[in-house]
Write a protein that binds this DNA or RNA. Structure first.
Lengths: 211, 211
DNA sequence: AAAAGATTACCTCCTAAGAGGTATTTTGTG
DNA sequence: CACAAAATACCTCTTAGGAGGTAATCTTTT
């Protein structure tokens, strides 16, 4: 497997070693040029402006922003740029989220270089590429009001962040300058939206979905 | 920075792309030879036997085993092999665990190639190397009964696994064929050992420490 | 064999979290 | 401006989890 036409790629991952390793791994390939590397969400739009890559590889867990949100921004501002998400999560929910956002590919970090090259080849040819390991996990959603799930508000995401950080509702109320009652209301709404009912379920769900 | 004497390195990480990327990144270095790559805990001891590396890079989160436990096994069976843990967790507790196990280095995945080379240079010269980003996080333990913390039993680790999986105590009792009361007792003992007091704290702690 | 540690299991009491309801204020969008 | 959505905040009630205690039975180590 090798790439037929020249491709300019931008790598976005906060793990420097992974990012640099990937660059090293791909630089040896014919027709692949790594035009830049970014280690946080912040500089991404600017880097795209400056480097005009054909394709970006994007991690979902960036320290300062959810990769899927970032993907949406990129697609909005630079519709011609192809996006392949590169993550360690194989959950079907996040896969659906990714599809909905309109990314062009989704590859797991425990995948192989060959798959990566297949993905690159596919997306530069206006196709999509989703990791084979994801198959079998994708069951259609009941589609009625479930479509509205996942529509977490900014405040709800913030609450989830603190729950994941190990705080209880009183501590979260302190941190957010909200009433304890309000925090509990948000937690209830979050559980409703995500279909969870305990804190441990919520954390598991959030971890698997990069929330 | 370059390495002064030839070093044979074995890479152990379940994320193929990271593993391969790292190989690519290090292969270009003088005096560094990547003698092998392993993608799960299972084949590690055999690979060491066969390839006799001077140094192994070891991920903490392997699918089939905790990397720190694996490090202990390696040190027991091959005391001359140097071990550098390579992980994304910067928690002080796991750092202490690593020290106690006797690993020779601990480097974060969002570190740089230069740090990696410094680490290699250090450990092959019988020194240790711990990521600079870990400094400031290392406060000495009260040392009395805190030394006994972290001594989680097999059953306790199993309970933690189910808690992380989102099950409540009743469901865990079902899964393990234990009484609900027993599960609660284990949870209480776990909280005591880890110094936590809520489920969310426990999960956070477990995640950060690769339990 | 004795001691130490691990596992099992029950008790009570208290608190955090979840479920259900309601209502006001604020913010954003057509 | 009007309407919808989000954010805020209180109420009650039920349940799961945490804290403290005790103790019998295994298992492992000395």
């Amino acid at each position: 497997m090798s790439i037929a036409t020249p491709v300019k790629i931008l790598l976005i991952d906060d793990h420097h070693l992974f990012n640099d390793g990937l660059k090293s791994l791909l630089s040896s390939e014919q027709n692949i040029e790594i035009v830049g590397q970014v280690y946080e969400a912040k500089g991404v739009l600017h880097a795209i402006q400056r480097l005009s890559p054909d394709l970006i590889f994007l991690d979902i867990n960036l320290p300062d922003k959810n990769g899927i949100e970032l993907a949406a921004e990129v697609l909005k501002n630079y519709p011609s740029v192809k996006i392949i998400l590169l993550t360690m999560y194989s959950d079907s929910q996040i896969y659906k989220e990714a599809l909905r956002t309109g990314v062009h590919g989704y590859i797991l970090k425990n995948s192989s270089k060959q798959n990566l090259l297949s993905g690159i080849e596919a997306v530069v040819n206006e196709k999509t590429y989703f990791d084979a390991k994801l198959n079998g996990r994708i069951e259609e959603a009941p589609s009625d009001d479930l479509a509205r799930k996942f529509a977490l508000t900014a405040r709800e995401k913030e609450i989830i962040k603190w729950v994941k950080a190990g705080l209880d509702s009183y501590q979260i109320a302190d941190k957010t300058f909200l009433s304890y009652h309000t925090v509990k209301t948000h937690r209830r709404n979050i559980h409703f939206k995500l279909g969870t009912s305990t804190t441990s379920e919520l954390i598991k769900f959030a971890n698997e979905n990069g929330i």
